[in-house]
């Protein structure tokens, strides 16, 4: 298994090569980060089927804004910051959509039928009950607590890395983790199950 330092060095090589006129070098970044970004998007978006588009948009944003990356920094916190900001923006838009939308049942049916022919990456029926409950528990959390929990507990970033990605103090990361855990215990161990 590659060490984190080795991965960081490969990232920087790929970024530099891309910036020097070899866009194909960005493939290293895409292949390395598509799985983790997909997982991040899947757990942070309330509509998990949007995760695939979100990953494409995040990587495209990173690609188009690569010249803004400071080469003396680690690449992955920069990419994660873009990702979290993009996912927040999608969630804001989704919440607004529930109140404001052009209503057109006919086209929606068309879109849904075409999409279903292609196979939905998220088949609710195939999710195990435990995973469904775990996702429900995540969805009970406030957005900022969920971000911290997903990055630290599921994506296995260090507290310092979470702090860097989200731009919040490490103490706040720990506080949010604590609150997330308590909220999920209340959900899973609460009295509503009996």
């Amino acid at each position: 298994m590659q060490s984190q330092k080795h991965k960081d060095a490969e990232d920087l090589w790929a970024v530099q090569a891309t910036l020097q006129g070899n866009p194909a070098a960005f493939e290293t970044i895409v292949r390395r980060y598509t799985p983790v970004l997909y997982s991040l998007a899947y757990r942070l978006l309330e509509e998990g089927e949007e995760a695939e588009d979100a990953v494409q948009d995040i990587l495209e944003k990173a690609f188009r804004n690569l010249s803004r990356f400071r080469i003396n920094k680690r690449f992955f916190p920069w990419l994660y910051t873009i990702a979290v900001n993009h996912l927040r923006s999608l969630e804001r838009r989704r919440r607004r959509r529930s109140r404001l939308r052009i209503v057109s049942s006919e086209p929606e049916r068309i879109l849904e039928s075409v999409a279903s022919e292609q196979g939905n990456p998220v088949e609710q029926s195939e999710l195990r009950e435990g995973e469904r409950l775990a996702q429900q528990a995540l969805e009970t959390l406030r957005a900022e607590h969920r971000e911290v929990f997903v990055l630290r507990q599921i994506q296995d970033l260090s507290v310092q890395e979470v702090s860097e990605v989200l731009g919040i103090p490490e103490g706040t990361v720990k506080t949010y983790l604590h609150r997330a855990r308590k909220a999920m215990i209340d959900f899973l161990a609460g009295s509503g199950w009996e």
Binding site: T34, P35, V36, Y38, S39, Y42, R43, A51, E52, V55, P121, R128, E129, G130, E131, R132, L133, A134, Q136, A137, L138, Q153, I154, Q155, D156, M184, L188
Partner: peptide, 16 residues
């Protein structure tokens, strides 16, 4: 099962 997944965390990662 949900609690075990949340405690361990990593199994909740999802493949693209």
């Amino acid at each position: 099962q949900a609690a075990l997944l949340l405690v361990e965390g990593k199994p909740l990662n999802r493949q693209p």
